[in-house]
Design a protein around this nucleic acid. Structure first.
Lengths: 144, 144
DNA sequence: TTAAATGCAAAGAATTTGCATAACA
DNA sequence: TGTTATGCAAATTCTTTGCATTTAA
């Protein structure tokens, strides 16, 4: 698993390199953090993780690199209603059901959106991207 | 139409009153603005409209009254991905398809979400509220 | 008269930007 | 050596809060 992770981090760094970017400690650390878990993490969360190993890496650097990685298609971010955006590797991205009451976020499989996708496309020519937004509502525990 | 609008504004003011609230100029103006159009308006937009008639009404008062009206169920707010929330009368609320590219927001009829609603309920016990979040994606004009 | 609402200023959260310095290639 | 990226501080955007004052009832 170490190997897989490292190989993929290096692949992304090569991609960055091939686009004229540079391989820096901040980028490597951030990618290691992104590949290390599929948890729902904000820019601050990721900065904290990175800073536990390299405290000098600044939050603004993390934001800039997250932007860059998103432009490259390596990651996507999702707005969970209120509050900060969360970031995922593009490969492990998924939809979210977020409870307006307790705030809990549940992962939603893509097929949950297949009906909505095809209807939105047919009726409005609109291609939805279920990984970029959160579906708000009430979870089982918070339903009246 | 004037009459209808006024009557409904007054109804909401009565509701407020019945809950121990007070009928103020700021609240009346804000409600007039809310009833006057179904456009997608932010707190700032609404404040500007209100301020064109009563310049002393402060943005923070608008925010406080929007919160209050939402607590009463008179309005709902929606997060359109990035940027500020928009507010609608609860009766005329609807879902939104928001283009990530050009930012344009299209109203989505509730029935677009009926499949997603029943699946989310069946599989996750989750009751979605399609009016509280925006569906992000690409509109026809911005599709590749 | 008195609790509720307002105006204003200031704080807060999340994110972005300007700029001098550092460091990859 | 010449960009590119970083650190830091400051600015931005959206929203909330504290507090003294006003006002509806």
């Amino acid at each position: 698993m170490e190997q897989t992770t490292s190989r993929t981090v290096d692949e992304v760094l090569s991609l960055l390199r091939s686009r004229g970017g540079r391989i820096t400690a901040a980028r490597r650390q951030l990618l290691e953090a992104l590949f290390a878990s599929t948890a729902h993490r904000t820019a601050e969360d990721l900065a904290s993780e990175v800073q536990s190993l390299a405290p000098e890496i600044h939050l603004s650097t993390v934001y800039r690199n997250l932007d860059e990685l998103e432009r490259l298609g390596v990651i996507v971010h999702t707005h969970l209603g209120h509050g900060p955006a969360i970031y995922h590797l593009a490969g492990s991205a998924h939809g979210h059901l977020v409870c307006e009451q307790c705030g809990k976020a549940v992962e939603a499989p893509d097929r949950l959106f297949s009906g909505l996708s095809s209807e939105a496309l047919a009726r409005f020519g609109f291609r939805i991207d279920p990984r970029h937004f959160a579906v708000l509502g009430r979870c089982r525990d918070c339903s009246p």
